[in-house]
Design a protein around this nucleic acid. Structure first.
Lengths: 214, 214
DNA sequence: AAACCGACTAAAAAACCAAAATAGTATTGA
DNA sequence: TCAATACTATTTTGGTTTTTTAGTCGGTTT
């Protein structure tokens, strides 16, 4: 759903004005999402109204429905934006490295840092129980994506001969297990806020990633 | 709170009748807990009344208040019982082994199996949101206990020279990290019920535990 | 025609209150 | 000491009204 939305805005509207890098549509949508993000982050999903979002944008509520067809769609788009941003950041950092182990370490460290900065959002999300199901869907979706990303890293490592001592067909479940364990640590760290700070997690990554994938 | 309760029943009452291995008190309490456990497991905390528990025990409600001073205390005792049972089982299995790695593998495998058999309870618990906080308290309490247990295993391994390549003072956070990761996997497995079955988890334990703690 | 607004509606949520259910207590008896 | 009945004080529930809010529509501006 959120996907379709983004596809839409990168095609139809941009054609008319080729010199502009972003269309009017995209600017407005981005503005709406920015304001919505702030409000969701502060008050949660149930406690922010479309009127409030509209007010924050300096527009009428009905205008929002020009750009998004429901409140849920706005919310999905916000979450999607957050995910995309985090993923892009992590990906950039990971691809600064060549060796598999360095990539994995970068992944763990950067992802964790990114999440920690979004701790607020995480806590808000957990409150609205009505909507935890929705968030969980997003989470598992993201997790499947991450799984294939980790798999690629491992497979590249396997093919280049860096990763040994494992069958190639085991890589899928190893990636899944790794992510489950990693998210376990992240979650634990967030719930007991800040048990593992940046320094400790870096140390842990440097120590254990090579042991796991040698 | 639940702790005090158990301490109580293992001291005061048993003195009068030395030939009996368990006092009347303990028998009745165990009966109550057994029935309460069944009902909680089936209907959750909110949906089971003290009257129902009493009925299931063939006793009057007021009688329950002889043994437990509140509904919460009954609930705590039930959870505590479950935890104790699981822990005892795991401990027995772990201590069949001498080497640290074998112990850790046994821990991982047996704990996971135990949890999987309690999947039902887990899901029920997650429903009552009012009481998730309570369960979380139990969980973190258990986790602290488990942490010291894992720490002991690692320290023994360190002292006997089996565990190398790590500073002794790092063991506490390593134990914590290990548990956080492990519970992450367990949770993931439960949420996506049965992603990692017994066979896969055993394979994973045999593969990764030695890598992690070598 | 595209972007926007204000007024409108239908539906959901909150506020309210009476009635029922239930946790916990007191009293009594075996 | 243990258990049961009868009771009270809280919660919880169910039903009703009121308010809020998501989403629509007709019209206006750009």
């Amino acid at each position: 759903m959120a996907f379709l939305l983004f596809v839409h805005l990168t095609t139809e509207k941009r054609i008319r004005s080729k010199n502009m890098s972003v269309s009017k549509d995209e600017i407005v949508k981005a503005e709406i999402l920015e304001q919505a993000q702030k409000l969701f982050q502060q008050f949660g999903l149930k406690k922010t109204t479309m009127d409030e979002i509209a007010l924050a944008c300096g527009k009428a509520k009905s205008t929002l429905y020009h750009y998004f067809k429901s409140k849920e769609e706005v919310f999905d788009a916000v979450i999607h934006m957050e995910v995309i941003n985090l993923r892009q950041h992590v990906k950039d950092k990971v691809e600064e490295h060549k060796k598999m182990l360095d990539k994995l370490q970068a992944y763990v460290i950067e992802f964790n840092l990114g999440i920690i900065q979004k701790t607020n959002l995480y806590h808000i999300v957990k409150q609205d129980s009505m909507f935890e199901a929705r968030a969980k869907k997003h989470f598992f979706q993201m997790l499947d994506f991450e799984k294939s990303y980790i798999m690629r890293i491992l497979e590249d490592g396997y093919d280049s001969g860096e990763y040994r001592g494992v069958e190639r067909e085991d890589i899928p479940w190893i990636a899944e297990l790794f992510l489950a364990a990693f998210y376990g640590v992240v979650q634990y760290s967030v719930e007991r806020d800040g048990t593992f700070d940046e320094e400790k997690l870096t140390k842990a990554a440097l120590l254990f990633v090579p042991k796991l994938f040698s």
